[in-house]
Design a protein around this nucleic acid. Structure first.
Length: 1036
RNA sequence: GGGCCCAUAGCUCAGCCUGGUUAGAGCGCUUCCCUGAUAAGGAAGAGGUCGGUGGUUCAAGUCCACCUGGGCCCA
């Protein structure tokens, strides 16, 4: 058992590669899971990334957090299995393949063939997965790739089918119409993702049209509804007019040069109407419900329609507050019209042209129909106003055709019918940050709409519904069931298109042929089904047990964009199928932005490539930055400089403290067993051990609360305390091989390494191998196999902590005073006066440290110094006064300011209370500052002061010179390349003044510089040395 | 257009829940100090209308409302 030398310089990325090798060769990840066999499980679900491109830095972000908490809980004794997953299906994959093949739409795919196209999609997924595994491995995210689930695997698809059948059996999976953006040229609907790529600014007509009222009081007034639209081509399909039920509408008589008429508009949009106005009637929107009107075009048959309906989505931001409804061409329109039982009539063919038999515009492309229709409106007198209107409108990103919102048949899951259950499950979910629960996510649930499940595409889980021409329907839950229906052995069938499309069988009810409906499902359903589908539940052997043991998850974690993505589908499918959400705790991360606060995108060229980032700075640095530099749930900026700082400040300081320990433990042949009991160690040791145990408490609490930033801050502060106070102040003890100091530092480093391990697994593993295992062979082979440190509350001494804090504040003030006085710290001073409330009880050891740090010979309490040395000033303590006297504080503060401070403090110190004005105050109602009078150099802060006596005696000057000489020789040792433990012989010469100082303290100097002999050589030239000394060092 | 989140030093971020009168840290910059582990450390300086406006209060960076700007999600 011994300590190895650990180099101070370290190449972090190189160390990481060695550690990766060590983990791999020794199966450390597998062992951390196996070691907890039989322990309570802490379940984590991996949200599968879509392998449709190369991983970006934002992928690292989520994966850092997905790694930290499983590592933490493993150390805390839980078994955390981590199954990787890949989201394989979906439009993004199809688009990537289409691009590769140079396709421009569904026609090309069908020409190419669905089977070969899907083969290409499968290949594309497999190709990108390796980039993800490389990145994942490099960053130290421990997850089991060997057992990864793939959403395209047959057993996964069958499990998804099973769940769909469960939903179908409940009557919640149905076909209905859906309005979606649609490219009439490509003949396909577009996803939101595609939509976002194609917005273009266009100028469209904006028309105000009169719809004459035909029933009730308003008809008697000859009133017309004034309706605004920017899509005149949809007026042919007008079915209703929507108003907001709670908005005030007015019927106004308008008179201009030519005529008088009565129009109905929202009251606060009356400005739209020009001319002399007289309000005839005011009414709420809901009073207009079911008022009938005459539509502008009678070209197509729309039965039982054309009246006013109520809709809360109507706004009075622009237009007239009366919104024309064409349910085939607007999602809101469709929802509103459907709730009134209005028909959905569509005069436009899938190619975007009006049906040939429509008058006036038959055969016209929808966008081209605006002009002739406006002309017709003008001719019939229905047109009130016609303007041009510039706005952004979605276009097809492939062919730039203006998109149509177009009603298409689509399959829905009736999630609205389980809304109450979803709200119940959400209420039981632990969200981090908490605001998401009732905010963004809660709102989304409250405004829940049915899930449009189907896609008219190729590469996805086929919707397992077969139908005959009499609309009899069956949902299939497995290949086995399908085989039984079809009378074929199908267990080896690829459950994808086009193979499943080929399976047909006779309808049990009408004997007609049943064929599969053509759609595939939304790939978000795939990923939301992973809690059971990852096990092949319930078909696969053993899956039932595995599923039950791992449902619901204790922890999931993704970025905030998943609120309506995976967080939603996971909860919804769980609730639909099992009546229970599939996760208990969810950590919702903010986004990673570039150094200028912009989203990272290829387009802006500001993407940080993750592998390069880790090769440059090291994965630990990137991890620490993600975890600790800012709040996990806030959006954060990433740049090279900020990551560099992490390395310098935190990781290298930690490393160098380890290296320092190794240096002296090695030099003095320290053994851990030599460490004395804690109670026998000096105050300084007991302090840092107290801080260490406080740290264990803090980090544990923060990580239990998923707040890595607070944990990181506490750890960084401790590293700083350890290195820059404990080690620095104890340096001499280390030189001397003090076993208490070496043992204390070792204890701190071992525990610190364990606390850091889940955050920065590489450097801590290296330290474990270099520092811990060689000294204690009983320790586990990896830090990640060790148990989370238990806090020793008995070692926490809060009084000691506050005393050290006071010591450090006094030192800080003293240094400021020193700097101000212009006298170097190397020059000893005779006396310092201290004013601080805890001074009188400060232990001697700490006073010595202050004296040493400030290089003063004696310290004295300012209160015991000669009487008129001190000026006392007081200020009101608003916090305590405000609590006692409330509104009177300002007056009291004035009264206090007007009182003689010295007398006031004297009285209070003697009797505890006194009256100022009419108020009785106590000592803690004042902020007291004591400052020495002139002749001293002083610094004060928050009522604490340090004053230095600047008088230099010849003895002090000589002592200063001795210190100069020692420093000079030490520097020479370093520049001569001597080892810290080399013994030397010194030959010296100096100016008279310096020589006198040296002669008085030869033994001390020799001792400090490890000199066996120290001899003057008057012949040695001293001219060109700054302090008037020259030395020659000879290694013994 | 709607909802949610965010806005504090040149930069990255604390502080806000629980209001208290000179608003903090680190990086960067200038000057100086210290150094027998450190790519470190220390001191001083420059740098802030705490996004804006109003309100509540004896007192607002902190609580409330509105506005502006940014981000995300949804239309």
């Amino acid at each position: 058992m011994s300590f190895r030398a650990i180099p101070a310089a370290v190449d972090l990325p190189a160390v990481e590669h060695a550690i990766l090798k060590f983990w791999r060769e020794n199966s450390i990840f597998e062992k951390t899971v196996a070691a907890r066999e039989g322990a309570a499980a802490w379940t984590f679900y991996e949200g599968p990334p879509t392998a449709n491109g190369m991983p970006g830095t934002h992928h690292i972000e989520a994966r850092v957090f997905k790694d930290l908490f499983p590592r933490f809980h493993t150390m805390k004794g839980k078994q955390v299995t981590r199954k990787a997953g890949w989201d394989c299906h979906g439009l993004p994959v199809e688009i990537a393949v289409e691009k590769e093949l140079g396709f421009s739409g569904k026609g090309d795919i069908e020409k190419f063939g669905i089977a070969p196209f899907n083969d290409k999609c499968r290949e594309s997924v497999q190709r990108h997965v390796s980039a993800f595994t490389d990145m994942t491995d490099r960053m130290g995210f421990w997850v089991d790739f060997d057992e990864a689930y793939w959403t395209m695997s047959p057993e996964y698809v069958e499990s998804v089918w099973w769940s769909l059948k469960e939903i179908w059996k409940k009557g919640l999976l149905v076909q209905d119409h859906r309005v979606a953006p649609y490219c009439p040229r490509c003949g396909t609907g577009l996803s939101d993702h595609e939509l976002a790529q194609g917005y273009e600014t266009v100028t469209d007509p904006s028309v105000f049209v009169r719809f004459p009222v035909t029933s009730g009081e308003l008809a008697a007034l000859n009133a017309s509804l004034l309706v605004w639209t920017t899509t005149p081509w949809t007026l042919v399909s007008n079915t209703a007019v929507a108003v907001h039920p709670e908005v005030e509408y007015v019927a106004i008589e308008v008179t201009d040069e030519e005529s008088t008429e009565v129009l109905v508009v929202a009251q606060n949009l009356m400005e739209t109407v020009k001319g002399e106005k007289k309000i005839l009637k005011t009414m709420l929107g809901k009073e207009l419900e079911r008022v009938t009107y005459k539509r502008p075009f009678d070209y197509i048959e729309i039965p039982d329609a054309h009246y006013v309906v109520l809709a809360t989505y109507v706004t009075t931001e622009d237009g007239t507050g009366l919104v024309h409804q064409a349910p085939a061409f607007g999602a809101d329109d469709l929802a509103v019209c459907r709730s009134y039982g209005l028909p959905v009539v569509n005069p436009i063919a899938p190619d975007g042209h009006f049906l040939a038999d429509v008058p006036v515009v038959g055969g016209t492309f929808f966008k081209e129909a605006d002009k002739p229709l406006v002309k017709e409106l003008k001719a019939s007198g229905a047109l009130y106003k016609h303007q041009q209107y510039e706005h952004t409108y979605p276009h097809c990103w492939r062919c730039h055709t203006a998109l149509m919102y177009y009603a298409q048949p689509s399959w829905y899951i009736r999630t609205t019918s389980i809304k109450d259950a979803l709200l119940r499950e959400n209420a039981a979910t632990d969200w981090h940050p908490e605001t998401i629960k009732e905010g963004r996510y809660g709102d989304w649930l409250n405004n829940n709409i049915d899930w449009a499940l189907s896609r008219n595409r190729y590469w996805g889980t086929p919707l397992p519904i077969w139908r005959c021409e009499n609309k009899h329907e069956i949902c299939v839950d497995s290949l086995k069931e399908l085989g039984a229906l079809a009378g074929q052995e199908l267990s080896n069938l690829d459950p994808h298109r086009p193979f499943v499309d080929d399976i047909t069988f006779a309808c049990a009810e009408c004997s007609q042929t049943m064929t599969r409906v053509p759609e595939v499902i939304d790939c978000w359903y795939d990923s939301g089904a992973m809690p059971f589908a990852q096990w092949g539940y319930p078909h696969k052997e053993g899956s039932v047990e595995k599923f039950k043991a791992s449902y619901p998850a204790d922890f999931i974690c993704e970025a905030i964009d998943q609120t309506r993505g995976w967080f939603y589908t996971l909860m919804t499918i769980g609730t639909l199928v099992f009546d229970q959400s599939s996760y208990k705790t969810v950590l919702c991360l903010g986004h990673i932005l570039d150094k200028d606060g912009r989203k990272m995108s290829k387009h802006l060229g500001n993407v940080l490539e993750p592998m390069a980032l880790m090769d440059q700075h090291g994965a630990d640095a990137v991890r620490w930055y993600m975890l600790a530099a800012g709040s996990p749930w806030a959006a954060r900026r990433v740049g090279h400089d900020s990551i560099n700082e992490v390395v310098r400040k935190t990781l290298l300081t930690y490393w160098n403290t380890v290296s320092f320990h190794a240096l002296y433990a090695n030099a003095s042949h320290f053994e851990l067993s030599q460490t004395p009991a804690l109670s026998d160690r000096p105050l300084m040791d007991r302090w840092i051990i107290s801080e260490l145990n406080t740290l264990v408490q803090e980090v544990d609490a923060a990580l239990e609360d998923f707040d890595s930033q607070i944990a990181g801050r506490a750890l960084a502060r401790f590293i700083d305390d350890l290195s820059n106070w404990y080690v620095r102040r104890s340096r001499r003890r280390f030189w001397d091989g003090d076993v208490a100091a070496l043992g204390t530092l070792h204890e701190c480093l071992v525990t610190l390494t364990q606390l850091l391990a889940p955050l920065v697994p590489f450097i801590t593993e290296q330290v474990w191998q270099e520092l811990v295992i060689p000294a204690d062979s009983k320790q586990p082979a990896s830090v990640h196999l060790s148990d989370w440190p238990a806090v020793n509350t008995g070692a926490i001494d809060s009084e000691l902590a506050s005393q050290v804090a006071l010591t450090r504040r006094i030192v800080e003030l003293g240094r400021a005073t020193r700097a101000e006085s212009g006298i170097k710290i190397r020059q000893p001073l005779g006396r310092a006066l201290i004013a601080a409330s805890g001074w009188s009880t400060l232990p001697e050891a700490m006073r010595e440290q202050i004296a040493d740090e400030l290089n003063v010979q004696t310290l004295q309490d300012i209160a015991t110094a000669d009487g008129d040395l001190v000026d006392i000033s007081v200020k009101a303590n608003f916090k305590s006064l405000g609590a006692k006297f409330g509104g009177a504080v300002q007056e009291i503060a004035k009264a206090i300011a007007a009182t003689d401070a010295t007398a006031l403090v004297k009285t209070l110190r003697a009797s505890g209370v006194t009256t100022v004005g009419t108020w009785e105050i106590a000592l803690d109602d004042l902020v007291i500052t004591e400052v020495p009078k002139s002749g001293w150099s002083v610094s004060s802060h928050d009522g604490e002061s340090v004053a230095l006596d600047l008088e230099l005696t010849p003895a002090l000057i000589a002592a200063g010179n001795v210190r100069e000489v020692i420093r000079f020789i030490q520097e020479r040792r370093k520049s001569d390349g001597l080892d810290i433990s080399d013994r030397i012989n010194v030959t010296w010469n100096a100016t008279d003044e310096m020589a006198a100082a040296i002669e008085t303290d030869l033994a001390h100097i020799a001792d400090e510089v490890l000199a066996l002999s120290i001899t003057r050589d008057a012949g040695l030239a001293i001219n060109d040395t700054e302090i008037g000394v020259e030395v020659v060092l000879v290694k013994q």
